[in-house]
């Protein structure tokens, strides 16, 4: 998935429901995109996929430990996202939280289908609730990463996922050390902005 697409206007939409007006869809918050999706917008659906596709697939894979089952669960989750976007209520929680709930339920259904241990859904004790909260955060972080420029995302991934030092990243990407530091700083700030916007 390219983020260049998200940097540019996806298409000029002169009269978008939800008060989006002619803004770039890529700039819209997850909540705004879900609201637009509820009106049947395919572009909004694609935007949600671009932002959350990898995150939902990762969540399902983590819960099911089977790539095929995770693919089925992801497809089921996005089927429900498409059909039930109208049930999302921003007053009751964040878009990431709603998308997590839909994805978790799809994974649980897939687990039951394969007679694996069902994922706890209804009653959560304290540790399970903490796990759920962390999973929502993980989903939001992965989604936010898709919205920052590729140049910044690349250095953040090397720094925080691959644990490389700034100097190692500079060597790896043939960039001046200062550029690496600048991109990490600006990438973190952008992520912070998106994550704060995503908090319930």
């Amino acid at each position: 998935m390219s983020d260049e697409r998200l940097e540019r206007p996806i298409v000029a939409l002169p009269a978008m429901p939800g008060g989006l007006g002619p803004r770039r869809l890529a700039d819209a918050s997850d909540e705004e995109v879900l609201t637009l999706l509820a009106s049947g917008s395919e572009l909004a659906f694609r935007t949600i996929w671009q932002r959350y596709g990898a995150a939902v697939f990762s969540l399902c894979l983590r819960r099911l430990s089977d790539r095929g089952a995770a693919e089925d669960a992801t497809q089921e989750a996005f089927t429900n996202i498409w059909k039930r976007a109208a049930t999302f209520n921003p007053d009751r929680g964040s878009a990431a939280g709603w998308l997590f709930a839909v994805s978790r339920n799809a994974a649980a259904q897939e687990a039951r289908h394969h007679r694996r241990d069902a994922v706890p859904v209804a009653v959560l004790d304290q540790s399970q609730a903490a796990d759920e909260e962390e999973a929502v955060t993980r989903l939001a972080v992965h989604a936010a990463l898709t919205r920052i420029p590729a140049t910044e995302r690349a250095v953040l991934e090397l720094a925080y996922f691959d644990d490389l030092s700034h100097s190692q990243i500079a060597d790896r990407l043939s960039l001046p050390l200062g550029t690496v530091k600048t991109r990490i700083r600006s990438g973190l700030l952008r992520l912070q902005q998106y994550l704060e916007g995503a908090r319930p």
Partner: peptide, 15 residues
């Protein structure tokens, strides 16, 4: 906090 969340999130799996 963002750095910590990034570390905890780990690399997502590409579908």
């Amino acid at each position: 906090d963002v750095e910590e969340q990034l570390r905890r999130a780990g690399r997502p799996e590409a579908p």
